[in-house]
Design a protein around this nucleic acid. Structure first.
Lengths: 232, 232
DNA sequence: ATAAATCTCCGCAGAAATGTGGCAAATATA
DNA sequence: TATATTTGCCACATTTCTGCGGAGATTTAT
């Protein structure tokens, strides 16, 4: 269980700080507020936060300088919040190392959405290589990366068309899919093939499934198309 | 060997696509444009990009659906660009998995600054995570520093192209990689070579691997590309 | 029950994709 | 400059895939 994230806010208007703080607290974050650039920098050196929300115009150290100072020593995400809404200001802020730039007045809900988006990005980068894209259907695992379907961890050796067809049916599991839809989505509309072509591939698919030992059945929906069910 | 970053743009207004494209090209990115949700999704499955810029209102598949569809299978950064500027729209977009949300009309320079900010965030996260210079794949050890691959501690004498190709496949182990992707990421976009060039290098790679005594096999993914598996 | 419609299965052949060996231009090396 | 290496390309052989016709089985309708 991950700890609560700690967020520092720096703005010389105390009211702004408090408003943002109350929203972030409601979202379950730990929050500390500061009213000038120097105090947030000192606090950060003392105890690093997980994200900073800073204003541009502040006493002691302004937001731009603060941003580059922090960036020299940390990869912590920074969101700049400012009344300065000109393009050069935004670009300066983003270029100096901030992850986002919001102009006042802004919606607290949007700020929260953007904070979450940044945290999600960090998570995605962290787990990137561990995520496996696969669909489970009955006793079969369909792995889109490997482009193969497995039963008991063993590849059942589907061809391209067979794989695409099974993949499409699995994406629409428990739902009947018409032949026309299959021809359109799996075969592609530039192909002029007989409707019966689907039957052929289904036939081969069924054979390979049963040969592999799987008990997954592709149901026929009479006069319409086919369907696979989540549980075998 | 870090290539130019590849960016896909999807907007049903061709003019918007072209304007964004020209700016991004000037910044040194590779760019491809699409005019509906489905075509960018198909292109992405065939050849993943490094970042997506998508509109909300598009034919076939709208931006929101596209965003969650992509997010289900990839961590690629997504920037939504839309004429819808209400708070709920922004929050919806950010919550569904986008990394940023810009409202039209927007400044191209700001878009570029935000794109760079996202790439910087990913770099910052990457430095924290991996510093591995050696990849083990089957009975082969690939050393990025020495730029050579070893079996039983002995260099198997790969040429530059052969090494780059094996290295790329190893980085994507257990994942099928298309020829198009290889041409883009290993050969580089500026080179116009026959698709079959990949087959040639694969051929030589396979020979050197087997000559060296290694049992590592490069699998053919019929009608798509190639793949190496973690365990030989 | 009987007829009509629909689906499954079999074998096949054309088509598409890939593997193989040789060749030559470009590049590096001595 | 001469030599060796690398790498893309081509032609041909081989493998693999996939749609089709048709026979027989199954389901539905009357």
């Amino acid at each position: 269980m991950e700890n609560k994230k700690l967020i520092y806010i720096a703005d010389d208007e105390i009211n702004i700080c408090n408003i943002i703080k109350s929203f972030l607290l409601k979202e379950g974050y730990d929050v500390e507020t500061f009213n000038d650039g120097r105090s947030i920098l000192e606090a950060f050196n003392e105890k690093p936060a997980d994200l900073l929300v800073i204003d541009i115009m502040m006493p002691e150290i302004d937001g731009f300088s603060l941003c580059s100072a922090i960036r020299r020593q940390s990869t912590v995400p920074i969101i700049i919040v400012s009344a300065k809404d000109t393009e050069p200001d935004k670009i300066a802020g983003l270029t100096l190392g901030s992850d986002d730039y919001l102009t006042k007045p802004f919606s607290p809900m949007e700020l929260i959405a953007r904070i979450k988006s940044i945290f999600r990005r960090i998570e995605l980068d962290k787990i990137k290589n561990d995520t496996v894209q696969e669909i489970r259907i009955g006793d079969i695992i369909i792995n889109a990366d490997k482009k193969q379907a497995e039963f008991n961890g063993k590849n059942i050796g589907l061809t391209g068309m067979e794989f695409n067809l099974l993949y499409y049916l699995a994406q629409n599991k428990d739902k009947a899919v018409s032949r026309t839809e299959l021809l359109d989505k799996v075969w592609g509309f530039e192909n002029y093939v007989e409707t019966r072509a689907t039957d052929d591939t289904i036939k081969r698919l069924r054979k390979k499934l049963s040969d592999s030992g799987s008990s997954l059945k592709i149901e026929t929906v009479w006069g319409f198309g086919f369907k696979v069910n989540e549980k075998g």
